[in-house]
Design a protein around this nucleic acid. Structure first.
Lengths: 341, 341
DNA sequence: TTGTACGCGTTATCAT
DNA sequence: ATGATAACGCGTACAA
């Protein structure tokens, strides 16, 4: 027997008044008798009345729910972004529906469709690494659902964007390695087709170029995913090269840790034989031995700003054609896994 | 100008037929003309019609959405549980609404209320460490919303539960330390009032008791939270004791890493001077130096089973009074941070 | 101050 | 095979 929940009408019947009066009493409507209001509020509390948000959403065409699509939440990055998003959206009265694409294009499409059906008010998204076209995002926009892209760019998609200057972070890291005397710098790059992969790779290449360092094909290896396991073989390949690199810039901390692990197993000194720098500044990165040098990003701010931008679109209602593109600067954090300059 | 999305009626008008016919055409109803069906489907596709799930939910009193309440997602544990939950619920046609209580009792209450309002079908929850009463959960149940508690128990709450035998895990760890020759074993315990904290502590105490080891007050310190920072001071306090422990069993890997960090800074050998064992088997735990011994839990299975139990309640409809209580056994994983037996 | 009527989008039921 | 109607729970314009 499905217990149906208490409704406005239930209260109205019990008090022998109309549902609209009950509605007004519960919403601080100006035109309402104090007595009736008191009675209604009292009974509502007693019956533990909960307004049905589905009905409200249907009526107002507004659900006060924002969808957040991220590829994963195992790492520090996205879970922190989500915290930033929540800290902005929650006080503003918005719900957050977190959805994981699992780095899968297909799942991402399924999620966006579901969101459109559930009448979500707006969407914050960081696309999966396997995402190739943006039709599903454009479909959302055509439905009048504002979209903000964060961290991972969607080149060619007209949307508000909050990004981090990955190019700059990579450039800083590699230039530091050069300044610290490294001569043969390798790069453990990310999965192809991902904006952050490309930008970090380009930063690496340009830093080498600026200092007239030759770029060697063999020194750049793409990993297939973001787990430790994904980094092991590529790191081995790199460190077994005839002309072994004396520095590795890894696309993230997780992969950097794999590289450290491999290097240590091979009996190499860090940073004596190989300097290593990661990206992301995961919370545990400073606890490894040696402590990992890395690139710090204003992750929490990325979440907050993305949410604020979405919020403004949501509240102004009128779509303003001016799209925002905000880019945060990352910072190099030098610890013990790289030589001093 | 808010673009309202395409509805059944829009399609009906365009085709000069009734909304119900359109509805039938789109749902493979038996009684429907092939021609009209073809026309409807074609137009629906062209117009990118998306059924409004709010309306459906309102009508059927079923939203096909399940709420998942977890204290945090930064660690490996809850993100993996969520994966398990999703892998069961998604194929069954259910949506998942992930909500973070942030270890806050207040937020947890707010979340449960919101879930009741949004007419969620069922709830999976692992309570916050600050949660003290279960009224909010009972309110959900009274509303006819099935509830499954996982990992962290709610003593006294009548609900389906999927737990891990934390007592047993702790017992195994401590007994191993004893067998490996440690004489003065300390425990970095979790926040008070948390079932897993109590069970792990009890396992520690009973293992000592079984082997006639004295229990020293000074050897048990509670940490206030689950981050690395929360573990530093307690670990320092422990390792600066006049009678320094020769082993530490930490309530989780994160805290164990803090302890390792402190020990190394003090120039202690691990496991020569201090053995260390954690709990959770985080993915990076084996990459530390020395690799961390720990307790592995069937995390993914916890998620899957919880979801399956909820699913059965959801589908059978009729509430069956028989509550399930499933307890998984954890496994001790010995790496390099503890001596061999 | 309060009640009535209507509509949000959908489906089930009954009628045609 | 198709259409009309009612219903889900709520808020609001309008009437009383």
């Amino acid at each position: 027997m499905k217990k149906s929940r208490v409704t406005l009408t239930d209260i109205a019947k019990a008090l022998n008044i109309s549902a609209s009066t009950v509605s007004r009493a519960l919403k601080d409507h100006p035109a309402i008798n104090k007595e009736t209001k008191r009675a209604v509020v009292k009974l509502a509390k007693k019956l533990k009345y909960q307004p049905n948000l589905l009905a409200l959403g249907l009526l107002q065409k507004k659900t006060y729910t924002v969808g957040v699509i991220v590829p994963e939440i195992t790492g520090h990055f996205f879970s922190t972004v989500i915290t930033g998003i929540r800290d902005v959206l929650s006080p503003a009265g918005y719900n957050i529906a977190i959805c994981l694409s699992n780095e899968s294009f297909q799942e991402e499409i399924a999620i966006t469709e579901k969101m459109a059906k559930t009448q979500i008010d707006g969407v914050l998204v960081s696309p999966a690494s396997s995402t190739k076209t943006y039709k599903h995002f454009k479909a959302l926009q055509k439905n009048g659902i504002p979209l903000v892209v964060f961290d991972r760019d969607c080149p060619g998609l007209d949307a508000d964007k909050v990004l981090v200057d990955d190019y700059d972070g990579a450039f800083q890291a590699v230039e530091y390695l050069i300044n610290s005397g490294c001569k043969n710098i390798a790069h453990l790059s990310g999965p192809m087709n991902l904006s952050i992969t490309e930008h970090r790779l380009q930063g690496y290449l340009d830093a080498l170029g600026k200092h007239k360092f030759p770029v060697k094909q063999e020194n750049v290896i793409h990993v297939s995913g973001f787990t430790h396991e994904d980094g092991i073989k590529p790191a081995q390949k790199l460190l077994k090269l005839k002309n072994r690199p004396d520095a590795i810039f890894a696309m993230n901390d997780c992969i950097a840790i794999s590289a450290m692990h491999v290097a240590k197993k091979m009996g190499l000194q860090i940073p004596g034989d190989v300097s290593i720098i990661g990206f992301d500044d995961e919370p545990h990165s400073s606890y490894f031995t040696p402590a990992l040098s890395t690139i710090w990003q204003p992750v929490y701010s990325v979440g907050m700003l993305s949410a604020r931008i979405l919020l403004s679109k949501l509240q102004e209602g009128e779509e303003e054609p001016e799209l925002r593109r905000e880019v945060f600067k990352p910072e190099l954090i030098i610890r013990a896994s790289s030589k001093a300059v």
